[in-house]
Design a protein around this nucleic acid. Sequence first.
DNA 1: AGATCAACCTGTGAGC
DNA 2: TGCTCACA
DNA 3: GTTGATC
Length: 269
Amino acid sequence: MPELPEVETVARGLHKRLAGDRIREVWIGPHKKLLQSPARQMERVLNGALIVAFRRVGKHIVGQLETAEGPAQWVIHLGMTGRCLVYDAAAEMEKHTHLVATMESGCEMRYVDPRRFGKLKVLTRGEFHAAGAEPLGADREKFYERFHRRKTPIKSALLNQTLLTGIGNIYADESLFRAGIRPRRRADRVTRAEYERLYDGIQQVLTEAIAAGGSSVSDYVGAEGERGFFQLQHRVYQRTGEPCLVCGAEIQRVVLGGRSSHYCPHCQR
DNA sequence: AGATCAACCTGTGAGC
DNA sequence: TGCTCACA
DNA sequence: GTTGATC
């Protein structure tokens, strides 16, 4: 599942391969629900656009474009199974390919998404901004202020993208493990000291995951098809029934808001 | 306000 | 091999 | 992964 570290990896890969290149031709598939801008507008903006840069904003990939009409932005959300891949030549078209941008250099950027939960749009005015704060380098005090009065489970708060943007199921569980906090603890019952540990845990987990190229659970791959390897360092996520790497206790699984949560009953309180 | 569940989709692996 | 169920 | 309805 693409969360902040995976999206960061993809954005860096796209930037490396495509910055400075120009889109020569765009093909858009029939599933219009993926589009948050009309297909016509998407084609008009992308066709002939110079790719200035790609960057990550929360879980969004933002392509900075220069078009005949002026600057524009290409905003991509990968949903659960979206992939942005750069192909060298006209490789065989993968199943579930929904958009192909052929570059002047000859390579193609393809958006592939089996479940079609992703979203694509173009903006021709204004700067794209995510609802919540970036977790990496977030202000410690603001982080505490925004969380500590909530009655919702701490894990639900971490998944709330209007508070912090970019944390998903994997990194919420892994951060809570590092902080020693159970996912169901009410956010307003988490102590100040625990919030300090949680903040540090988030920084560490995200930084390490980015360095590892993200987590390749299910079929996540980066822009050049490379797998991440942070899944090898998961301490609780999808380790239900296995021994805790710290204390040996059995990792537990509970469902919270319809999503699996994994924790060590001994290390996390 | 918060919790739960369904919806949006397809693929995969487990178990019978 | 095929069906169903759980899960991402 | 996100959103919207309902209790």
